[in-house]
Simulated assay, not measured.
Amino acid sequence: MAVTANKIAKHDPVTKHDPVWSAIREEAVRVAADEPLLGSLAHSAILHHERLEDALSYILAQKLGNDALPALGLREVMEEAFDADPDIGNAVRADLVAVNERDPACRGFLKPLLFFKGFQSIQSHRVAHWLWQQQRETMAFLLQSRTSEIFGVDIHPATRFGRGIMIDHGTGVVIGETAVIEDNVSLLQNVTLGGTGKETGDRHPKIRRGVLIGAGANILGNIEIGEGAKIGAGSVVLIPVPPHCTAAGVPAKLLGDCGCEQPAREMDHALPDTADDAQD
């Protein structure tokens, strides 16, 4: 049975029912059989582990570890976070399902887990955010710094994410400290969720459920992008955007209804045919 956003079952550590992890292991077995050169990777990264969390900590630690942050120690920190907050693992699974459903270049769960830096950067951030909440700010910033260096995605450790998030490609994404990204949001490369200057306090955008943000969009200031809204590629958004509305341009204007309940799932970046009703 296909694992979809509507049918995803939460991981049950008691019964060990975990459809996402089962699907990943099946994919890894096929890869090891079809590509003998990748057999070692399939075993070390996937088949050697009992849980998705264990595999993820191994994969991220191998990529992010360095002399200042040894891979073995980093893996221990990540597993500490996963064990302390099981909801992180549920969010990881929802993010994998989101990538598989929305990215036409994705076929299954194994490839984003192993290779997609947008997905990997979100999961690294989830650990950094947990560290931030534990008042371990220096460790959180160190992990954030390594994530930025390796994946090209710069997310402040305090940023709050929901689940079912897809960052497609990832390169050049910058998200500020007080930003909030709710469930089932999709954003593409070179998106900035930033401030407008040197303000302090709550100064970054609030992105509500189901929003789609096109490549190169800049959303600046403590403004709300309403549920199910769509932001056109290359836009500079300085005004709030109502729910289920499309905004585009420099500076962005409101162009009318976006035509569906959750653009993030449809991934249709087309803008309305006319902008006769555009508002300042």
Rank of each mutant, 00 (worst) to 15 (best):
H156N: 06
G152A: 07
V185C: 07
V173I: 12
Q189Y: 13
G195D: 09
D183K: 00
V153G: 04
A179H: 14
N184G: 12
G194T: 10
G176Q: 10
V173N: 14
N184H: 07
D183V: 00
G152I: 03
V180C: 15
N190Q: 15
N184V: 08
T159H: 01
G164R: 00
G172A: 11
A158I: 13
G164D: 14
Q189G: 13
G152P: 01
T192S: 14
D168P: 15
D154P: 08
F151K: 00
F161L: 09
V174K: 11
G194D: 02
S186P: 05
G195C: 08
F151S: 02
Q189C: 13
I181K: 05
I165C: 03
H169E: 13
T159N: 12
S186Q: 03
V173M: 10
T192P: 08
A158C: 15
V191W: 01
A158V: 15
D154N: 05
I175K: 06
N190V: 13
E177T: 14
P157V: 09
L193T: 12
I165A: 08
E182G: 10
I167C: 04
G164F: 01
P157N: 14
M166Q: 13
T178A: 12
R163Y: 05
G172W: 09
L193N: 14
A179R: 09
F161M: 06
I165S: 02
A158P: 07
I165W: 00
P157W: 03
P157T: 11
I181P: 01
F161I: 04
G164H: 05
R163Q: 13
E182R: 03
N190I: 15
G162M: 06
R160F: 00
D183I: 06
L188G: 14
N190R: 11
I155W: 03
Q189D: 15
V174L: 06
V173H: 12
V180R: 15
I175F: 04
R163M: 06
L187G: 00
N190Y: 11
I165E: 05
I155V: 01
H156G: 05
T192M: 09
L187E: 01
I181T: 09
L188W: 04
G164L: 04
V173G: 14
N184Y: 02
T178L: 12
T171E: 10
T192C: 05
Q189R: 10
G195W: 05
V180K: 08
T159F: 03
G164C: 12
F151L: 06
G170E: 02
F151N: 04
H169A: 08
F151T: 10
I165V: 05
F151W: 02
T192D: 07
V153S: 04
V174D: 10
D154H: 13
G164Q: 02
I165Q: 03
V174C: 04
I155M: 09
A158R: 09
I175P: 04
V191C: 10
T171A: 12
V174R: 02
